[in-house]
Design a protein around this nucleic acid. Sequence first.
DNA 1: CGCGCGGGCATACCTTGGTATAGGCGGCTA
DNA 2: TAGCCGCCTATACCAAGGTATGCCCGCGCG
Lengths: 217, 217
Amino acid sequence: MTSRPLTRPAQPPSAPIVIVVDDDASLRDALSSLFRSIGLEVALFASAAELLAAKLPDAPRCLVLDIRLPGVSGLDFQAQLARSDIELPIIFMTGHGDIPMSVRAMKAGAVDFLTKPFRDQDMLDAVSAAIEIDRGRRAERASSSKLRALYDTLTERERQIMALVTSGLMNKQVAAEVGLSEITVKIHRGNVMRKMEAHSLADLVRMAEALGLSAKS
Amino acid sequence: MTSRPLTRPAQPPSAPIVIVVDDDASLRDALSSLFRSIGLEVALFASAAELLAAKLPDAPRCLVLDIRLPGVSGLDFQAQLARSDIELPIIFMTGHGDIPMSVRAMKAGAVDFLTKPFRDQDMLDAVSAAIEIDRGRRAERASSSKLRALYDTLTERERQIMALVTSGLMNKQVAAEVGLSEITVKIHRGNVMRKMEAHSLADLVRMAEALGLSAKS
DNA sequence: CGCGCGGGCATACCTTGGTATAGGCGGCTA
DNA sequence: TAGCCGCCTATACCAAGGTATGCCCGCGCG
């Protein structure tokens, strides 16, 4: 709930990036040229730590990850990313994996799990799907964080009135609920509409829905 | 959009059922006693066809399925169920599966994919999770089909007004949009509220949202 | 044919929503 | 201390929502 600046300097929509983490240099190179051949940007790393240290442009992306890594395992790294709430679609590669490993990865949200050697087309299909997923998630995050920012400008009272109004109560009922006069509720309600940039009650209801609000009586 | 009777005879909430499809009779029996030991109902079948022919009570359920089946494969059966829009959480078992097989199953929505021999506890955990998933889906289906039924009682005009009103337009704007007088819009709007059993505009907006309505201008 | 039903419109009347103007109170901070 | 902000309230006024009564039209159906 900290109020960070939410307007980043407008950047040209960057091309999708495939992040490859594998300790085998020759495989990295092969994947790099494979992805570049269809116009994707590529970022190569030999270990998870290197990736975490790197700064990557803000574009749709996905991670192509070997299960066996120097240091942590791919599955552990996946869990680590999830804990740091970094949402990044992952495609696993493995030379000596087993079924429980693949199931665990998929249950944790991996997009795909390829066994080496894999066909180029399979990898490209997986990466395309992953990039699409990330694109969708980014769009959702962008709109929902804008909504959050607006909601954060509301005072405590205004939030309270917003919850009650969007739950379907009339002004007089809201007033009775919180022990205010109806006119005061109207004022707050007007402030809420203005601050949330809602053009109608229907708008506001949808916003409340997206924010997960509910009137706890 | 056919108007089927939507009120089924009220049945007592039945206990969860585990459906087991495996051609190995001894495994079926073992699983049966395992599941019964924690109070779950069990339905046993030797093949997919037998399951399809059977009538099962309307209760939370899941399917425990061997990948290798007489006739169709488990994966094909999974796809077949999906096509017949039968939503049924599936737990696969396999003795000789491979990774691509497990990945395909998980991508198609399987809850788990266990390799034989598995530990009893792993199977029980998977089944519990699957039953929970089915319980949630059933609740969602029930409420959304009730909503559908109400929506189906609306006339064409009423549906049109509902979409426009819940998109945030005022009565006069709706009237201009569809070429009616404002008073007529009010009448339809009132009919919509009554037929949809909405107690407030906020309610109606949420219903429209759940129904996926949008005002196509 | 009469009837019901979906659809449309008008007048009248009341409730609810929304805003402007104006005032008071308490707390925080330059 | 003055000023700002959140908060609360009141009067007044107008727009929008909602319902009732009454009347009209066209269509399908027993």
